[in-house]
Amino acid sequence: MTESTSKPMVKICGLRQESTLQGMDGLPVDYVGYVFAPSKRQVTAEQAANLRAAASGVRMREGKPPRSVGVFVNPTMERLTEVLDVVPLDVIQLHGQETPAFCREVAGRFGVEVWRALSAGDGEDNDPALTGADRLADYGGAVSTVLIDTAGGGTGRTFRWETIPAYLEQARRHGLRLFVAGGLSPDNVTELLAAYRPDGVDISSGVETEGVKDIRKIAAFAERVNRS
Rank of each mutant, 00 (worst) to 15 (best):
A54I: 10
A151F: 07
Q93Y: 05
E62F: 12
W115E: 01
R109Y: 07
W115N: 00
Q42Y: 03
V83T: 14
D149S: 10
L51P: 00
G123Q: 01
D122C: 11
F72N: 00
L80Q: 00
D90C: 12
L118S: 00
D149A: 11
A133D: 01
V114A: 08
I92W: 02
N74S: 13
L147C: 07
T131I: 15
T81F: 05
G96P: 13
Q93L: 09
S39Q: 06
M77G: 08
A101T: 02
A54N: 11
S144F: 10
A54M: 10
V83H: 08
R67Y: 10
D134I: 06
A107I: 09
E98A: 09
E124A: 14
P65H: 01
V114H: 07
V146C: 14
L118W: 07
F110W: 06
V35K: 11
A54S: 08
V58G: 00
E124G: 13
E82V: 00
V73A: 13
D134T: 15
D125L: 15
R61A: 08
V87C: 14
A45F: 10
S119G: 15
G132A: 10
K40I: 00
V83M: 08
Q93G: 06
R135A: 11
A48Q: 00
A49I: 04
V35C: 10
P128W: 11
R109D: 04
Y34M: 15
F102C: 11
V87K: 02
L89A: 02
T145N: 05
F102V: 03
P75M: 00
A55T: 05
L118V: 02
L84G: 06
F110P: 02
H95T: 03
R41L: 05
T44V: 07
L94K: 00
G140D: 06
E62C: 12
S144T: 08
V83C: 11
F72M: 00
S56F: 05
E98G: 05
R116T: 01
F36D: 04
D85G: 15
Y139V: 00
R52M: 12
A107G: 15
T44A: 10
T150Y: 06
S56R: 12
N126H: 13
A55R: 00
Q93V: 07
A142W: 05
S144N: 10
S119R: 14
A129Y: 14
P88I: 04
E46K: 11
T76F: 09
R79K: 14
V86Y: 07
E62Y: 12
V71E: 03
D127H: 15
V71L: 15
D127V: 12
F110R: 05
A107E: 15
P66H: 04
R109N: 10
K64L: 13
L94E: 01
F102M: 08
S39V: 06
F72W: 02
V58M: 09
V73R: 07
E82N: 03
L147P: 06
T76E: 03
N74L: 09
Q47L: 08
